[in-house]
């Protein structure tokens, strides 16, 4: 599934992450800027890819500015960004969420 438009979720506060999804041609790209890149960069990217795959999102560029968010925060922010990008923020996909 392709997203409908660019969407953003999260903030730049400490322990949070700001995620922007935008449409691109070609395979999914993840651009992560993180204060904990060395320690957790790979883990964060894997988590993001997994969530995008669960929602079946393709052809997307994910830009993230991470300020040390925990996995649960990253998941929450990414799900919000996806819901906004596919205009389903008021109609969550419960099966994927479960």
């Amino acid at each position: 599934m392709e997203i409908k438009h660019t969407a953003i979720a999260g903030t730049l506060e400490s322990s949070d992450i700001q995620i922007m999804l935008s449409k691109i041609e070609g395979p999914t790209e993840i651009e992560l800027e993180s204060a904990v890149e060395k320690q957790f960069g790979t883990q964060i990217r894997t988590l993001m890819r997994t969530i995008l795959e669960q929602y079946g999102i393709t052809n997307v560029k994910l830009k993230a500015v991470d300020k040390g968010a925990l996995d649960c925060t990253i998941k929450a922010r990414l799900i919000t960004a996806i819901q906004r990008a596919i205009d389903k923020q008021n109609d969550p996909d419960w099966e994927v969420l479960g």
């Binding site: 953003i8 903030t11 730049l12 700001q18």
Partner: peptide, 13 residues
């Protein structure tokens, strides 16, 4: 600084 930038970006988005 980060809070202000977040607020501006969210308002614009």
């Amino acid at each position: 600084f980060n809070d202000i930038i977040s607020a501006l970006i969210n308002a614009l988005s």
